[in-house]
Amino acid sequence: MRNVIAIRQGQAQLVEGDSWQLLGEQEAPLPTGALILPLHRWLAQPSGYHGLWLGPDDDVESLQLWLGVLPLIAIDFPSFRDGRGYSQAYLLRTRLGWQGELRAVGDVLRDQLSHMRQCGFDSFAVREDKSAADALKGLQGMSVLYGRSVIEPRPLFRRR
Protein backbone atom coordinates (compact mmCIF):
# COMPACT_ATOMS: atom_id res chain seq x y z
CA MET A 1 0.00 0.00 0.00
CA ARG A 2 1.03 3.59 -0.57
CA ASN A 3 0.82 6.50 1.81
CA VAL A 4 1.27 4.42 4.95
CA ILE A 5 2.22 5.79 8.34
CA ALA A 6 3.26 3.32 11.00
CA ILE A 7 4.19 3.55 14.63
CA ARG A 8 7.23 1.41 15.32
CA GLN A 9 8.76 1.33 18.80
CA GLY A 10 6.71 4.36 19.71
CA GLN A 11 7.99 6.35 16.71
CA ALA A 12 5.66 7.41 13.94
CA GLN A 13 7.18 7.17 10.49
CA LEU A 14 6.30 7.14 6.83
CA VAL A 15 6.64 3.65 5.46
CA GLU A 16 8.56 3.23 2.21
CA GLY A 17 7.57 0.27 0.10
CA ASP A 18 4.83 -1.24 2.21
CA SER A 19 4.27 -4.67 0.68
CA TRP A 20 0.62 -5.21 1.60
CA GLN A 21 -2.01 -5.11 -1.13
CA LEU A 22 -5.60 -4.39 -0.27
CA LEU A 23 -7.83 -6.70 -2.24
CA GLY A 24 -11.48 -6.00 -2.93
CA GLU A 25 -14.23 -8.37 -3.88
CA GLN A 26 -13.67 -8.67 -7.59
CA GLU A 27 -10.12 -9.68 -8.26
CA ALA A 28 -9.73 -13.41 -8.76
CA PRO A 29 -7.60 -15.35 -8.97
CA LEU A 30 -5.54 -13.88 -6.17
CA PRO A 31 -2.43 -12.00 -7.23
CA THR A 32 0.84 -13.02 -5.67
CA GLY A 33 2.24 -11.28 -2.63
CA ALA A 34 0.90 -10.43 0.80
CA LEU A 35 -2.75 -9.49 0.52
CA ILE A 36 -5.32 -7.97 2.82
CA LEU A 37 -8.54 -9.86 2.13
CA PRO A 38 -12.17 -9.21 3.04
CA LEU A 39 -13.33 -11.38 5.94
CA HIS A 40 -15.22 -14.00 3.96
CA ARG A 41 -12.40 -14.39 1.45
CA TRP A 42 -9.85 -14.76 4.18
CA LEU A 43 -12.04 -17.29 5.96
CA ALA A 44 -12.32 -19.29 2.72
CA GLN A 45 -8.60 -20.05 3.02
CA PRO A 46 -7.28 -18.92 6.39
CA SER A 47 -3.56 -18.42 6.32
CA GLY A 48 -0.86 -16.75 8.30
CA TYR A 49 0.31 -15.11 5.11
CA HIS A 50 -2.63 -12.88 4.24
CA GLY A 51 -4.04 -10.10 6.36
CA LEU A 52 -7.68 -9.39 7.06
CA TRP A 53 -9.78 -6.47 5.90
CA LEU A 54 -12.56 -5.86 8.39
CA GLY A 55 -15.65 -3.95 7.30
CA PRO A 56 -17.75 -1.90 9.72
CA ASP A 57 -20.51 -4.54 9.67
CA ASP A 58 -18.15 -7.41 10.45
CA ASP A 59 -18.26 -8.81 13.91
CA VAL A 60 -14.91 -8.52 15.68
CA GLU A 61 -15.78 -11.19 18.20
CA SER A 62 -15.85 -13.77 15.38
CA LEU A 63 -12.10 -13.29 14.88
CA GLN A 64 -11.15 -14.72 18.25
CA LEU A 65 -10.17 -18.09 16.78
CA TRP A 66 -7.82 -16.64 14.19
CA LEU A 67 -5.94 -14.04 16.15
CA GLY A 68 -3.06 -16.45 16.68
CA VAL A 69 -2.32 -16.78 12.99
CA LEU A 70 -3.32 -13.44 11.48
CA PRO A 71 -0.36 -11.25 10.45
CA LEU A 72 -2.34 -8.00 10.21
CA ILE A 73 -5.85 -6.64 10.62
CA ALA A 74 -7.05 -3.64 8.62
CA ILE A 75 -10.21 -1.84 9.71
CA ASP A 76 -12.09 -0.04 7.01
CA PHE A 77 -13.46 3.49 7.33
CA PRO A 78 -15.82 3.71 4.37
CA SER A 79 -16.31 7.35 5.36
CA PHE A 80 -14.37 9.22 8.01
CA ARG A 81 -17.72 10.06 9.60
CA ASP A 82 -18.47 6.39 10.24
CA GLY A 83 -17.14 5.82 13.74
CA ARG A 84 -17.70 2.08 14.09
CA GLY A 85 -14.05 1.36 13.38
CA TYR A 86 -13.07 3.07 16.62
CA SER A 87 -15.12 0.65 18.71
CA GLN A 88 -13.91 -2.32 16.66
CA ALA A 89 -10.34 -1.28 17.33
CA TYR A 90 -11.02 -0.82 21.02
CA LEU A 91 -12.56 -4.28 21.28
CA LEU A 92 -9.80 -5.97 19.30
CA ARG A 93 -7.11 -4.46 21.45
CA THR A 94 -8.62 -4.60 24.91
CA ARG A 95 -11.16 -7.39 24.83
CA LEU A 96 -9.66 -9.83 22.34
CA GLY A 97 -6.06 -8.99 23.14
CA TRP A 98 -4.89 -8.42 19.55
CA GLN A 99 -1.21 -7.46 19.64
CA GLY A 100 -0.38 -7.47 15.94
CA GLU A 101 -0.53 -4.64 13.49
CA LEU A 102 -3.85 -2.80 13.34
CA ARG A 103 -4.19 -0.64 10.27
CA ALA A 104 -6.78 2.00 9.46
CA VAL A 105 -7.74 1.96 5.78
CA GLY A 106 -10.27 3.81 3.68
CA ASP A 107 -11.22 7.42 4.35
CA VAL A 108 -8.26 7.97 6.65
CA LEU A 109 -7.46 11.66 7.15
CA ARG A 110 -5.12 13.85 9.15
CA ASP A 111 -7.70 15.25 11.54
CA GLN A 112 -8.83 11.85 12.76
CA LEU A 113 -5.44 10.17 13.11
CA SER A 114 -4.94 11.00 16.77
CA HIS A 115 -8.34 9.51 17.66
CA MET A 116 -7.47 6.36 15.73
CA ARG A 117 -4.17 6.13 17.49
CA GLN A 118 -5.88 6.48 20.87
CA CYS A 119 -8.17 3.61 19.95
CA GLY A 120 -5.25 1.32 19.25
CA PHE A 121 -4.37 1.66 15.57
CA ASP A 122 -0.67 1.52 14.91
CA SER A 123 -0.64 1.98 11.18
CA PHE A 124 -2.62 4.24 8.89
CA ALA A 125 -3.06 4.08 5.16
CA VAL A 126 -3.84 7.72 4.49
CA ARG A 127 -6.32 8.32 1.66
CA GLU A 128 -4.37 8.26 -1.55
CA ASP A 129 -5.12 11.78 -2.73
CA LYS A 130 -3.74 13.22 0.51
CA SER A 131 -0.16 13.68 1.61
CA ALA A 132 0.94 11.22 4.26
CA ALA A 133 3.70 13.60 5.34
CA ASP A 134 1.05 16.23 6.04
CA ALA A 135 -1.22 13.74 7.78
CA LEU A 136 1.62 12.82 10.10
CA LYS A 137 1.10 16.19 11.80
CA GLY A 138 -2.34 15.07 12.93
CA LEU A 139 -1.10 12.04 14.78
CA GLN A 140 -0.02 13.77 17.95
CA GLY A 141 -3.39 15.26 18.85
CA MET A 142 -3.77 17.03 22.16
CA SER A 143 -1.78 16.62 25.33
CA VAL A 144 -4.85 16.07 27.51
CA LEU A 145 -7.12 13.05 27.38
CA TYR A 146 -9.89 13.21 29.98
CA GLY A 147 -11.27 9.74 29.52
CA ARG A 148 -9.36 6.62 28.84
CA SER A 149 -8.34 4.90 25.66
CA VAL A 150 -6.51 1.84 24.44
CA ILE A 151 -3.11 3.44 24.76
CA GLU A 152 -3.95 5.23 28.00
CA PRO A 153 -6.28 2.93 29.93
CA ARG A 154 -6.39 5.14 33.02
CA PRO A 155 -8.76 8.09 32.88
CA LEU A 156 -7.28 11.49 33.72
CA PHE A 157 -8.74 11.41 37.24
CA ARG A 158 -6.36 8.57 38.03
CA ARG A 159 -3.41 10.49 36.61
CA ARG A 160 -4.21 14.00 37.80
Partner: peptide, 12 residues
Protein backbone atom coordinates in the same frame (compact mmCIF):
# COMPACT_ATOMS: atom_id res chain seq x y z
CA UNK B 1 -14.86 15.89 31.10
CA UNK B 2 -15.18 12.23 30.25
CA UNK B 3 -17.20 12.90 27.10
CA UNK B 4 -14.99 15.74 25.86
CA UNK B 5 -12.90 14.51 22.91
CA UNK B 6 -13.44 10.91 23.91
CA UNK B 7 -11.76 9.38 20.86
CA UNK B 8 -14.03 6.37 20.47
CA UNK B 9 -17.27 8.34 20.45
CA UNK B 10 -16.73 11.36 18.22
CA UNK B 11 -18.42 9.88 15.17
CA UNK B 12 -21.55 8.33 16.55
Amino acid sequence: QWSTINPEFLFL
